[in-house]
């Protein structure tokens, strides 16, 4: 296993639930190049897949589309940054809430997982041609 000081990889995926396994494969491939423990790798893959799922589910509301989303994973000096770019409906940040932890019902868990795993979650307006730009970041030791 290499222990690279710097990584920057990006890939496009069709916005569809059927792309989620490809999103996970891409993420696993990237994290294989980093010397971090397997549990952390699994958590990061989960956070990335949940964010991609949110694009399918919320930015596109599950509609069929040929649009693509872009995921960019960058690591430099222990700062991991994962960018998500999509052309779906603009995210209304004040409407994004994870479920209350004592409220046992399906749904709302994806955002909760992301917030548990990552240090910071930032929504930005995307630069053209993108509409939304989500940034997940985390400081990691490797």
């Amino acid at each position: 296993m290499n222990n690279l000081a710097q990584i920057s990889e990006q890939r496009d995926f069709v916005v569809s639930s059927s792309s989620l396994k490809d999103v996970r494969s891409f993420s696993r491939e990237v994290f294989e190049k980093v010397n971090i423990d397997q549990d952390l790798k699994d958590e990061l893959v989960l956070a990335i897949a949940e964010a991609a799922q949110n694009i399918v589910k919320h930015a596109y509301q599950g509609e069929d589309t040929e649009d693509k989303m872009e995921i960019k994973i960058s690591l430099a000096n222990g700062n991991l940054e994962i960018g998500f770019f999509d052309k779906g409906r603009p995210v209304e940040e004040d409407k994004i809430r994870h479920r209350k932890i004592d409220d046992i019902k399906p749904g709302g868990l994806g955002t909760f997982f992301i917030q548990q795993i990552m240090d910071a979650v930032v929504f930005k307006e995307g630069e053209k041609p993108w509409i939304n730009h989500l940034i997940l970041s985390k400081k990691i030791d490797y």
């Binding site: 989620l20 996970r24 989960l46 897949a49 949940e50 799922q53 046992i104 019902k105 399906p106 749904g107 868990l109 994806g110 909760f112 997982f113």
Partner: peptide
């Protein structure tokens, strides 16, 4: 080998 929040939702719905 892998379950995300959607899978967990199925477990919750089934339980309920």
């Amino acid at each position: 080998q892998y379950m995300d929040s959607s899978g967990i939702s199925v477990l919750i719905e089934s339980h309920q």
